[in-house]
Simulated assay, not measured.
Amino acid sequence: MIERLARQLRKEERDLLVLEAVLEHHPIGITRVASETGVDEHKARYSLRMLENDGLVEPTPNGAVPADDVEARIEEINGGIDHLIERVGSLRISEN
């Protein structure tokens, strides 16, 4: 169970790393995302697709760019992460 959670966390961490690259270097293509982040191109492509599905980036002929409302979405994400940190802290199994 913990390994599954750790894998998902690594994927989400990669998506946020790719999002940061888009925010900093837009418009940005897959090759540059991979170069800037150290993420393999196929994983960068997948992360960009997930970010697009989440409405955080938009594809253009010149590369990915942040969505128009990305600042508000980032605030939501950060609030959600804070909430998850609290929840994870309460997930300990009691030793009886």
Rank of each mutant, 00 (worst) to 15 (best):
M1T: 14
M1F: 11
R4Y: 12
L5I: 12
R7I: 00
R7C: 03
R14M: 01
D15A: 05
L16T: 05
E20D: 13
A21W: 09
A21C: 04
L23I: 09
H25T: 10
H26Y: 12
H26A: 02
H26V: 09
H26L: 07
H26I: 01
P27L: 01
P27A: 03
I30N: 08
T31M: 14
T31N: 15
V33Q: 00
V33G: 06
V33W: 06
A34D: 05
S35I: 09
S35F: 01
S35Y: 00
G38H: 06
G38Y: 09
V39Q: 10
V39L: 02
E41H: 08
E41D: 08
E41A: 09
L48E: 00
L48W: 05
G55E: 03
V57E: 06
E58K: 13
N62T: 09
N62E: 15
G63F: 10
G63H: 12
G63S: 04
V65C: 05
V65I: 15
D69F: 04
D69N: 14
D69Y: 10
V70A: 00
V70T: 08
A72R: 14
A72V: 04
A72M: 09
A72T: 07
I77M: 01
N78P: 05
I81K: 01
D82T: 05
H83I: 01
L84M: 13
L84C: 05
I85T: 08
I85N: 09
I85V: 14
R87P: 00
V88A: 13
V88E: 00
V88R: 00
L91K: 00
L91G: 03
S94P: 04
S94Y: 12
E95I: 03
E95F: 11
N96K: 11
